[in-house]
Amino acid sequence: MIKFLDLHKINARFDSQFKKEFQQFLDSGYYVLGSGTTAFENNYAKYCGTKHCVGVSNGLDALILIFKAYIQIGKLNVGDEVIVPANTYIASIISIIQAGLKPVFVEPNSATFNCEASTIKKYITSKTKAILTVHLYGQLADSEVISLLAQEHGLLLIEDAAQAHGAENVLGKRAGNLSNAAAFSFYPSKNLGALGEAGAVTTNDDELAKVVSELRNYGSVRKYENVRLGVNNRIDELQARILNIKLQHLDADNDKRRDIAKRYLSKIINKKITLPFYDGSKNHSFHLFVVLVDNRDDFINYLLKNDIQSSIHYPKPPHKQEALQQFLDLQLPITDYIHRNCVSLPISPVLTETEVIKVIKTVNAF
């Protein structure tokens, strides 16, 4: 069976390093916001090209903390509108609502799955105060053009970069450094995945980094001195140490994903399968390789019969979730079509040549 994602095999590559790091962690006697966290924050900020990285508990909390920090700074107010792609994981929407803001759903481009500046512009009103771009499946949104649009209208630009670790634009700037602030998830299945929950905020904004850092740790500037009504959203010290090890291999792993994607794109030839858009650059980290197929259930079952696992990202769009009933009446045909027909094929740095060939041949024979 070709697994959709073999996390055990991915992490087994670092087994001896993990064990050595765990022993050092254990021996340190310092288990929260220790030297491992500081090292990872410094290294990931350098990797992304930003002044700051603040490690937090997960990707959703990273987004919520960004919005809440901007409210405390005074750059956002409760009730402000935030433009967000309709085609995204529900966490993007939850973060806006949890911060007391109002999401405004925008349809994506059907080829790239991401929103375009020309579409976003139509939804900007006097109530709009921020744009949340999502680098869905690992492909960068058109951040340069969207950034100019945000500047033109005096809007904050925030990245949901949970799936785009290491993706680069044409200028060589990485995800996390294409906006006012960015949120990352290091969930185990991500390209840079922890062995549990973890996340981070990256930014060049000194004040935002300071407020996020305070909010994540009970609103404190130092122990027992609380200047804000904060939360406990700290990154786990052990996870930070694990991420520091894996960060050294992220670029190589992303290159392997891109190589597999290029093979799929050049060798899969089946009129029933719509392949994803890719310009061949580093702007896509291929966290996921998502195809569209009309008879999705038949396709998934066919793959399983041929010992290939697949997945769906995501079967139901946010505006049709029971938790977001206030948006059920929205008419979003492009988003609905994508969520109704999308299938994610196996793609990971540990897929073998034999497995890649089998996926290609099996998909072509569908």
Rank of each mutant, 00 (worst) to 15 (best):
F25L: 07
P333A: 05
V134N: 08
N43W: 03
S311E: 09
G230D: 03
G29K: 12
S285N: 12
N114T: 14
Y302M: 12
Y47C: 00
F113T: 05
K262F: 07
D329W: 08
L250M: 10
Y264N: 07
P108V: 03
Y123V: 02
A162V: 10
E214Q: 15
P108A: 04
L60E: 04
E168N: 12
A39Y: 04
V290C: 11
V359S: 05
L7V: 07
D297Y: 04
S95L: 06
S16N: 14
E197G: 00
S311W: 14
V82H: 04
K129H: 10
A323T: 13
N177H: 11
H135P: 02
E322W: 06
L288R: 14
L7I: 13
E152L: 12
I235T: 09
N58I: 05
G49I: 06
N341W: 07
Q98D: 15
S220G: 00
A141V: 13
N58A: 04
I71A: 10
E81D: 11
L324H: 02
F105Q: 00
A69D: 08
L136M: 10
S281A: 14
A181M: 04
F327V: 07
N180R: 08
V291I: 15
I90T: 11
I97R: 09
Y89R: 12
D336V: 05
A111T: 13
Q17I: 09
L292Y: 09
H52V: 01
A39S: 13
L332T: 01
S92N: 10
A39F: 05
D253I: 02
Y137H: 15
G34E: 03
H287T: 11
C48N: 11
D297F: 03
H135A: 12
A45K: 00
P276D: 10
Q248G: 00
H249E: 15
K282A: 15
S285D: 08
L275P: 02
V106T: 02
P85S: 06
N114I: 09
A167R: 11
L304W: 06
T119Y: 03
K223N: 08
D236K: 08
K320C: 05
D160A: 14
G230I: 06
N306R: 09
K246W: 00
N306D: 04
A167C: 10
I71E: 13
L351S: 05
